[in-house]
Each structure stands twice: as structure tokens, then as C-alpha cells.
Design a binder for these strands. Structure first.
Lengths: 191, 191
DNA sequence: CCTTTTTCGCTACCTTGGGTATCGATACCT
DNA sequence: AGGTATCGATACCCAAGGTAGCGAAAAAGG
């Protein structure tokens, strides 16, 4: 979809190094942690100049968001009923956050967003909203209730990651699934 | 332990300005956000030199942790049964995080801890462990289950704070209480 | 009163890291 | 060929955490 529609713009075309940069970002974050994964180091790991990074992404946060979008891909929403859909979604995001570098990058960019309204907007619009809408559609739940579920699931996984430095183990993920499902079945929820 | 009460050490005694610094920290964080609440600004707001801050706290993170400890105080664990105790604890931490500056400071220091193992250790030992132990005792639950509850409750509250910039509204806090209580009553949990 | 010890405020400084500017070289289109 | 936009490289700006050194002030003890 790069040259998707009309008339490729003039000038030298961009070399297709986005995938290389994404891979370098995750491996650098995994190796050094989020704060030490500087843009200089990521560029070096990707074999690319720092200026090239900043020509494509306006900030480190924007780079990380795009990297996470690439790493996550679409939510798998197969499942017989709402319970199955919800369970598979929770296990999916838990597994993604457990992948090397992904959890650190997610927690790191989320952290930066706390003090950066522009980044918060980006995170909300580009990363959260698409999944939120897909979930609203698949579950037939209203926006505020899906937002609540996202807070619970993602918040729990990131808090564990942030406090221990390691992703949540499977047994705890299953506890989280059960907790959310029980509550989903209850039908009660925020006004 | 450290020659606790008696025998004041020689030299000029410290002026009792800790409370002023804590207040200045919270108000500065509330006004400018966590990242813009630099140590210089906090010192200025407290009417104190930056070097005085660093003479008392080894890092900004340590200052914030002490500030949060001061703001939180002990958990109120009154309540007839385990459900009442848990509910009051959840409402208590939600209310604290909703106080001006506290939620931002908490989310901010948590964010920094993601990339800073030393700060993570400090956060875990000085802030989480005391409350965790008190909860284990009051609820009669094992460590890993209490840790799971803390991940869920604090993670959810901080995720909401981080994504929206504002604390969770009461209706959603009540939903969180209900969700946690249902799961607590179930008796199931992580191995 | 005077010395010792420690804190105080102040200023100057170091380092890291996000982000920008500039420049020659290069790749593609018309 | 000419135009245009990218690439790599270097140099740079700025904010912010943290440190060093200094003279001044506040206590304790002689």
C-alpha cells in the first residue's frame, strides 16, 4: 500500500528499510532496555543514519508506536461466543507483550506518554482505538465498557512487566482471563 | 538501628523542610506534569536549593517515592470480612491516586522505573512491599495472589490515568471493586 | 569566645539524549 | 540533462539529572 493510489511523488524514493528499523528497535530495546535504547543506537543497529529515522518518524515515541503496530498486527477475534472472543484477545495481547522487546517497548512508550500529551494522543488514536473499535464490534459492548476492559487487561500486564521486568507467566494470564470472563458474564459494568 | 533516637549527631542540624518539599513536589507535578516537574523547579517551588534536595534524596525517583509514601500513609484495613477489606483498600488507593498530583507522580515514577532497575527495586521494596505484606496479613492470601491483585488494581488505575490524563471516575472504580470482589470470592487464582 | 562539624544556598559544570540544520552525494522521474 | 527528494555524516542546540566546590550559617562542646 506504499505507492497505493495516484502518482508516485518526485524525487529519490525511500529505501525499504522500515522493517529493518523495526527489528533493530525491538532487539535494541530487548538488549538494553527502553531508556538505553537511544535513537542513535537503534539507527546504528539498523545500519542507518539517525537523520533517516527522524526523516520518517517525528519522534522516538512515534517510531515505537509504529514498531508496536507492526509487531502486533490485527487482533485475532475468532471464537464461538463473546467469552471465547474475549479470552482469545486477552491471551493474544499477553503473548505479544511477552515477545522479546515488545513488552519493554510498550511499557516504555506508555511511560513517556504520561508526561507527553501529544504522544498520549498518538498512542490512543493509532494503537488503542483500532483495537477498541474491533472489540466493540466483536463483543457488542459499548465504548466505555470496552475501554474499561482494556484498562484492566493492558494495565495489569504492563504493571507486572514494569514491577518485575518480566512478562506475566501463563498461570497468572489464565487467572486474568478467568477474572475478566466472570465479570463479562455478570453483565454489570460502569455506567 | 541507626542510633535511633538519642545522641544527635554533631554539626548543623537539617532544617525541617521535608514537608515543604513534598508539598512543592505534588503541586509542581500537578501543575506541569511529571516530566516538566524538574528538580530545579521543585526546589524553586519549595524555596530551597537544588543541592539541598540532592543532599537528602539520591535521585529524583527516590524523592518521588518518599513523597508518595508521605501522601499515601498506611492502608486503612478496617472491615468485617475479606470482601469489605478488599473493597475499602481498592477505594482507598483509587482515591489517593485521584488526589491532585499524586496520580501523575505515581504514573511518572512507575514509568521511569521501567528502564531503571535500581528505581524498580526502590519502588518495590519501599512502596509495594509494605502494603503487600499488610494485605497478605489482613486477607490471609498468599503472596503471589496478593501480587496479582495489586497488578490488577494499580495497573488498571495507572493505565486509565496514563491514557486519559485523568483519574478513574467513581463509577468505573466501583466496577473495578465488583470485578475484584467477584474473583476474590471465587477462590480460584494463580498457582 | 572559639573551634569543629555539618548543612545551607549558590554557581558552575559534566553527561546523556532527543531533536535540528546543513551539505555533498545519490537515485529516480520526466 | 534537470528537478526533486532521499541518504549518510557531522556538527550542533537544549533540557534535565546529577556533581563539585565555595563561603556562610547553625548548632555542640570546650
Amino acid at each position: 500500500m506504499t505507492s497505493a493510489t495516484s502518482a508516485r511523488p518526485p524525487g529519490r524514493p525511500r529505501s525499504g528499510v522500515n522493517a529493518v528499523v523495526f527489528a533493530a528497535t525491538l532487539s535494541t530495546v530487548q538488549e538494553l532496555g527502553y531508556a538505553r535504547a537511544t535513537v542513535d543506537r537503534i539507527a546504528a543497529a539498523a545500519g542507518v543514519a539517525k537523520t533517516t529515522i527522524y526523516r520518517r518518524w517525528p519522534s522516538k515515541g512515534a517510531l515505537i508506536v509504529d514498531c508496536l503496530l507492526d509487531a502486533f498486527g490485527p487482533v485475532p477475534l475468532e471464537g464461538a461466543g463473546r467469552a471465547e472472543i474475549m479470552a482469545s484477545a486477552v491471551r493474544w495481547i499477553a503473548a505479544k507483550i511477552g515477545e522479546p522487546g515488545v513488552g519493554d517497548a510498550f511499557a516504555g512508550v506508555f511511560s513517556d506518554a504520561v508526561s507527553d500529551p501529544a504522544l498520549r494522543e498518538l498512542l490512543s488514536a493509532r494503537l488503542q482505538d483500532p483495537y477498541r473499535l474491533a472489540l466493540q464490534d466483536a463483543l457488542g459492548e459499548p465504548e466505555n465498557r470496552v475501554l474499561f476492559f482494556i484498562d484492566v487487561v493492558v494495565g495489569t500486564l504492563l504493571h507486572r512487566m514494569g514491577m518485575t521486568g518480566e512478562p506475566m507467566v501463563d498461570a497468572d494470564v489464565e487467572a486474568l482471563v478467568e477474572m475478566v470472563l466472570t465479570y463479562l458474564a455478570d453483565g454489570a459494568g460502569p455506567a
